[in-house]
Design a protein around this nucleic acid. Sequence first.
DNA 1: CGCTTCTGTCAGCGATGGCTAACGTTAGTC
DNA 2: GACTAACGTTAGCCATCGCTGACAGAAGCG
Lengths: 127, 127
Amino acid sequence: MNPDPTDEALRALAEPRRRDILRLVARDELAAGEIAAAFDVSRTAISQHVTVLKNAGLLVERRDGTRRLYRARPEGLAGLREFLDEMWAGALDTARRLVEAERGVVDEPGRSDRRRGTNRDSSRGRT
Amino acid sequence: MNPDPTDEALRALAEPRRRDILRLVARDELAAGEIAAAFDVSRTAISQHVTVLKNAGLLVERRDGTRRLYRARPEGLAGLREFLDEMWAGALDTARRLVEAERGVVDEPGRSDRRRGTNRDSSRGRT
DNA sequence: CGCTTCTGTCAGCGATGGCTAACGTTAGTC
DNA sequence: GACTAACGTTAGCCATCGCTGACAGAAGCG
């Protein structure tokens, strides 16, 4: 349904309770009931959270009799890590570039149009 | 208001449009209007998104006349990276442990209580 | 087969979230 | 001071979300 795995993972992680569940299942393989017992909400709610996590690829299910055991699926976080690192690197680079530009030189446009007053020259341009 | 910075950052990033904004501002310092021009929604919507990102510490604002320039703030992602790495490591470790346990040996409990039927021994656990 | 255990699913409800339109505000221009 | 440009803010609308309660189904036991 959702063609973007990163989006789905991010949305799944946006919920505190789902993060808690994931943390639990990252240390041990647990049954649905055991997970639910760790919280003070209904098992229904937990089941739904687990479904979301499963659809996001952050969880794997393994059946054992009537029980369903869940454990975290680290590869599900791979896309996110990639996204974060990319963003991190880009922002750091840009920050550095801006500081350098600020620090004296005219500035290094990259693409030179649309320059209006991005840095230095904060006020009074009037003659 | 929200004492958990990771939670706030995660919730901010859960929205695709906010990620787009962040991507834009990670490459250049842009004014609110310039950001808004890149999308086909109202400037109001963008302004609200920017506010969320700012509150999450993922953005910094700099004023220049009537304009407000924004750029990504890489440190805002630090907590998330930490969270992800921690989760990643834990899940990987657990996965490895489970595989080893599966592969023959009784299993290496670590903490030994609450062992009921987590792996091998698929049925009959009742007293 | 009947009973119990463990669990997912569905319907409905209150809360949250993103969007638009109208308004308020600040800085610069004449 | 009047006007304009560039923004943020507020109120209200509709969709989504998380939660509960009731129900359904599969597996083991007598």
